[in-house]
């Protein structure tokens, strides 16, 4: 028990971080290797990602964090020369099993990218697209509900409810990114992968997305790749540090940022790399 226990409340970040420790493993990766042709991009990475927790992947450019993230919903399948070895299981089911349909997998494991990429359609259709193609709804009213609740969860509803027919591309950058998060939520995923979701946003839009991530944590398992260590420290409960394709260190975020074990982690987070 920490010495803070006397003062601790349920919302105390120190306790909150510890609280996730006992919870279930959502994604288990074992000895994952990724090759791009001859290049060995991910080397023997094993990591457990906890359910309903935000896990941040940090590391210098080219360290493999985005590559590894993309393994988690088989986005690397679309790259011909890319080869993935090892085992990645979500809820104990191997996602690289030939029986698994990658399209279904990606409905379960949603993704948000660095640059907001709304479809060139209306705000409504951006959200409705996924539920439609996955056959999640029968009636228009059901679809309306999903659109509204997804936008509400993404904290965008109040800003767009009167103009659902206007194009998604007409929103500001921060709104577009929240639209993409709403779009990911619309198909009821269990895991949301975010690849530098705030790197194209201003500080206020970033804060809104971070607030959203914090709220989404209640219902989703979130993995976020970020170049901002302050962001990783703010939004995540677990942090994994990648370097040259290796997973160097993974632990509670508060430990990684105050007292990392590995010297490479220390050098990276304190700005001594190079």
């Amino acid at each position: 028990m920490s010495s803070f226990s006397g003062l601790a409340r349920a919302t105390d970040p120190i306790d909150q971080n510890k609280a996730t420790a006992m919870e279930n493993v959502k994604i288990a990766a074992e000895k994952v290797q990724v090759f791009y042709g001859e290049t060995h991009a991910i080397k023997d990475v094993s990591i457990d990602i906890r359910a309903r927790t935000v896990t941040a992947f940090i590391g210098p450019s080219g360290c493999g964090k985005s590559t590894f993230l993309r393994c988690l919903n088989r986005m690397n399948d679309t790259i011909d020369i890319c080869r993935v070895e090892g085992r990645i299981a979500i809820d104990n089911e191997d996602i690289y099993d030939p029986k698994v349909d990658p399209v279904q997998l990606r409905a379960k494991v949603g993704m948000v990218f660095q640059k907001p990429n709304p479809f060139p359609k209306s705000i409504y259709d951006n959200i409705a697209y996924g539920p439609r193609i996955h056959g999640l709804v029968r009636r228009k009213s059901e679809l309306d509900d999903i659109v509204a609740s997804s936008l509400q969860k993404a904290g965008l509803w109040e800003e767009v409810k009167d103009r659902l027919d206007s194009p998604g591309t007409g929103l500001s950058g921060g709104q577009q990114q929240r639209l993409c998060i709403a779009r990911a939520i619309a198909v009821s995923p269990e895991v949301i992968l975010m690849d530098e979701p705030c790197s194209a946003l201003d500080p206020i839009a970033t804060a809104k997305v971070e607030e959203l991530i914090d709220e989404l944590r209640e219902n989703y398992t979130i993995v976020i790749v970020t170049h901002s260590m302050q962001q990783a420290a703010r939004v995540s409960q677990r942090t994994a540090f990648f370097h040259l394709g290796n997973l160097v260190e993974v632990g509670d975020t508060q430990d990684i940022f105050t007292n990392p074990v590995d010297k490479r982690t220390q050098d990276y987070i304190t700005g001594r790399f190079g």
């Binding site: 260590m229 420290a233 105050t258 007292n259 220390q266 987070i269 304190t270 700005g271």
Partner: peptide, 10 residues
């Protein structure tokens, strides 16, 4: 200015 981390923060 720096938002110190790790050893620096300590």
């Amino acid at each position: 200015r720096r938002q110190p981390m790790g050893q620096d923060l300590r």
